[in-house]
């Protein structure tokens, strides 16, 4: 391989091999661009990396070629074998300073303007429509893995990694938030891309509320909180392949969404309900959501509430 390099560069902070609680971040002194490392240790056997991991990485790289504006850039993937049982996979991502969680926290007093929310939502759905049309489900969409650049550009992150983590998840107790999980996942029924739309709905509401919509503490509790808002779904919509019976929940009727998301306009509320639809088959798709009247008024200047 080639030669010692010429250019000298500024020193680096000290490192602790796999130091806990820090992130490696770098600036490309040529382009000024920031990158950050994210590494995952993957269990291996005599066949090397699990094929699922290899494919997942291949998929991420393939998606990368589309250069979608609303998806975080994955610049490289580097693998190093640590032992016979373990390989470290380091993903080199573009670095974005904040995620939607901090973005919402930092938003000055009255919160985000309706236009800002609409813009964020449009970008989020664009990114999602892109992933879905490539048959990628995010599965764990939440404000923490939606990055927002200083220019207000939305970039989805952390999709497709579930599989890479999964080796660990199987071995160690996993911690996951339930707040953005759709009923079909909470019920452990079958699921597909509509899961992300549910999460998007929760996030949509959160943009107005600046606090999460459903804060459950267990699967059942989460479902209960959901039904308090959308009502208990009719018997025929309850999945048949689940252990948790509908009878476990009180017969709640839907409450007006404006009770929970006060600033939202009528079309926004309508779109929100289309996203927070119990039956995944009836839930709106990312592409259709982009066509929703809520987004239509953009060119003609924002109507309603301001």
């Amino acid at each position: 391989m080639a030669h010692a390099t010429s250019i000298q560069y500024e020193p680096v902070a000290e490192i602790g091999g796999g130091a806990y609680g820090t992130v490696y971040k770098a600036r490309d002194t040529e382009s000024g661009q920031f990158v950050a490392l994210k590494s995952v240790r993957v269990q291996t056997d005599q066949n090397g990396l699990p094929t699922s991991t290899v494919r997942e990485v291949a998929l991420l790289r393939r998606l990368e070629q589309f250069d979608h504006p609303n998806v975080v850039r994955l610049m490289d993937v580097c693998a190093t074998q640590r032992s016979d049982q373990e390989t470290k996979v380091t993903l080199v991502f573009e670095h974005v300073d904040q995620d939607l969680k901090t973005y919402l926290e930092r938003a000055p007093a009255p919160g985000l303007s309706p236009d800002r929310i609409k813009d964020l939502m449009r970008q989020l759905l664009c990114g999602l429509a892109f992933l879905h049309s490539n048959r990628v489900m995010h599965r764990d969409l939440k404000p923490e893995n939606i990055l927002v650049t200083s220019q207000g550009q939305v970039k989805l992150a952390d999709f497709g990694l579930a599989r890479i983590y999964s080796c660990h998840m199987a071995l160690t107790p996993v911690v996951v938030t339930l707040w953005y999980r759709p009923p079909e996942v909470l019920l452990q029924s079958s699921y597909a891309t509509p899961v992300d739309i549910w999460s998007t709905g929760c996030i949509f509401a959160e943009m107005f509320r600046r606090k999460p919509l459903f804060c459950g503490e267990s699967e059942v509790d989460q479902l209960g909180k959901i039904f308090e808002v959308i009502g208990l779904p009719p018997e025929d919509e309850w999945p048949t392949d689940v252990t948790l019976s509908r009878k476990n929940f009180p017969p709640l009727i839907p409450r007006p969404i404006a009770d929970f998301v006060s600033e939202i306009n009528e079309q926004g509320a309508q779109l929100l309900l289309n996203m927070l639809t119990f039956d995944p088959l009836k839930r709106i798709s990312a592409l259709n959501a982009l066509e929703h009247p809520y987004f239509r008024d953009e060119e003609t200047l924002t109507q309603t509430k301001s």
Binding site: V23, Y24, L37, V40, T102, E144, N145, A157, H168
Partner: peptide, 13 residues
Amino acid sequence: SPAFYQDSVQNGR
């Protein structure tokens, strides 16, 4: 740093 990057050095564990 955003939580998304945090995982990086935590060995995924």
